[in-house]
Design a protein around this nucleic acid. Sequence first.
DNA 1: GGGGACTAACGTACAGCGTACGGTAGTGTG
DNA 2: CACACTACCGTACGCTGTACGTTAGTCCCC
Lengths: 247, 247
Amino acid sequence: MALTRPVYAPDVPSEQSTATAVPPRPARRSRAPRGSLNPDLILDHALRLLDEKGLDAFSMRALAEDLGVGTMALYTYFRGKDELFRAARDRVLATYTPPSTEGSWDQRLRSACIAVHELFIGRPAVLRLLAESTASDDFLDAATSAMDRMLSLLLEGGLGPEDAARAYGTLSRFTIGSALREVRVCARPEAVEIFRSRIAALPRDRFPALADLAPELLLSTESGREQYEYGLDLILCGIRHLASGPA
Amino acid sequence: MALTRPVYAPDVPSEQSTATAVPPRPARRSRAPRGSLNPDLILDHALRLLDEKGLDAFSMRALAEDLGVGTMALYTYFRGKDELFRAARDRVLATYTPPSTEGSWDQRLRSACIAVHELFIGRPAVLRLLAESTASDDFLDAATSAMDRMLSLLLEGGLGPEDAARAYGTLSRFTIGSALREVRVCARPEAVEIFRSRIAALPRDRFPALADLAPELLLSTESGREQYEYGLDLILCGIRHLASGPA
DNA sequence: GGGGACTAACGTACAGCGTACGGTAGTGTG
DNA sequence: CACACTACCGTACGCTGTACGTTAGTCCCC
């Protein structure tokens, strides 16, 4: 039984087995010093892990190891994984800075939306957090800045309060939907390839429009940003109509 | 030690402890008969579980128990959880039947979109499957019917092939984004309540538009279908512009 | 200085997950 | 009647999140 113990003994190995200055426990550290952890540091590493390895590869154990710390140390600062995720999400959202473009209200609205979209697709894992959101509140906490900006631009454009609120909702839903699609499909060459082969295999008689538009559909799959701006302009066109026509 | 064993012994309990016709193992069945499983039956139960308990509560073990079957029996018909999820997703998407509305091309397009949206919000768990989609292909497999219908309506409206493809992309992204929001927020009273309190707590000086529009924002949170149709009409307005103006 | 309180960091353990692997039993065919 | 086949299943492995209790570094007060 005892010989099932691995070579690297976990506790108090033979002291000074060699005279070299090699630290005695190369793979197993004993205990992290007292001040070695704080919420910001944890979030830094968590976001790095999320960005590099993706949401699926993330785990509390992996994060702790990345920090050089025992797993349960994390629970001193966050009640659990959900709370940590919410904090990470909010921190990313808080990095939004509205682009200070000049121009008409609708041009500035356009820029603001694109900035949000860019923020999302730059952080695929965080976007997924946002979309799944087991914690069910809106992501209002830190997105207030973007939200307020877009709303005030809509008011500036002359929309009534109700229209402004609804138009904001439309923009926000489209932006999230777009970013999700971008992350799931456009950014993955393999997915585009699968799409291509599926579309080529469709029976032309049952799906004539699909078959006819195959090349255009593939094109539109290939650049998410362009697709987003196209749809954004469609929506903005509708919004301008609201603004020009009286209530 | 032995007395930690629960009362209901797991294996071959004393035969005929009572003379009643009660089957000898009420909780543990021995083995399901040969023909008791097939892909359709599995998917039926899986979808019922997903609809009733939600995606988070779903597990292969729970599904097997629901079927009265050993867990590993499922792996005879599906390579794993992912494959099962894809099949469930595709089956739900295949239930889409375009509403045979009369009217102009844009009215019919509107109805077709709304039907997709309704399909999604009727199946929240499946919608989440669709949005997360670890398996990274597009959900083209079974959504072809809706896709072809929408594309042909766009062509009928006079859009060029490229515009039709892009407009379809816009509608599809907005529809998914809307349904996701609906499922995450609108359909949950608690989420709306949290939203309400957050918005009330905002500093009016930093977020004036948000504070002013609080009532309208809350209103627009409360009916997802209405919000969806509002945004849909904005997009359709833009699409009609494309259709009327020449390329 | 010394002892006690506080708490950051941690080790262990548990329930539950997906599923690889091998076993078993019921069926169809020679 | 025997054999091959395979639908169903039991066990086990490695993984997850985290409840609970322990340890050890720090600070304060006597």
